[in-house]
Amino acid sequence: MAALLTVRDLSMRFGGVVALNGVGFEVARGSVTALIGPNGAGKTTVFNCLTGFYRPCGGAMRLSYADGLQVDLIEILGGPFRWRDLSSPRAFGRRLYYKMFGGAALAARAGVVRTFQNIRLFKEMTAMENLLVAQRARVNNQLLAGLLESASYRRAEAEAVERAWYWLDFFRLADDGNRLAGELPYGRQRRLEIARAMCVGPRLLCLDEPAAGLNPNETRELSEWILALRRGHGVTVCLIEHDMGLVMEISDHVVVLDHGQVIASGRPERVRDDPVVLEAYLGAPGEEGW
């Protein structure tokens, strides 16, 4: 399978602290790829770079879609001005545009959509409204059309509502559509956040610890949903997870990070038996499993 996402030499520093040092991996199109590693290994930092919240200090991140579209995720983040830009007004204009309007929002529009470790729903809005906000690209954003409720506006709105209901049904949240997101139980909030991400229409769905705080039943459901998303909706999934049962069950490819570096990657079984990985997790080679 061809790579959807190629990350090369990604590095990130905060002041003097090196968070990522030459991280490189690939996410194959249509795969489920897991990013694992001990706490503080830099997993969430990788996600923050991928989804445009941090601007990496160096490296390359590139998306290449099946339809031939190529996206340079670094350019989208609005890098610093270069001297070369002065000779080319177009390059300068692009850089200026990305500096002003770039970042996470453009990464999301390019198809990289994420969820958060600490759930970030719009708590004072209903579940439905959460899902409608996510459909920015599909609704009619024109002010006048909305004020006059033009036919095309109403059609787009009705379609958005339909799609939202679809995802609510998908994640068994149909009864919660008109409830405030902040009032839902924890497990439902997690699901709603994934549903919201799906409403954006992602090509690469990044889930940051989706199973954190879920009970075993909910975790099992989650793994079925993730597989269903990949199967039925053409989504490539990249996830950070500590629940090794889940990782082993659903992922095609595992990348292990430690101290900001990739120490192992490959098929789940292979990574599980890799002594380097065991050492990273347990501090020393030992007989205990995960």
Partner: peptide
């Protein structure tokens, strides 16, 4: 309203 609730989540959704 979404922005009032959570700006970071908004950005993650392409807003």
């Amino acid at each position: 309203e979404a922005l009032r609730e959570d700006e970071i989540a908004c950005r993650a959704l392409g807003i």
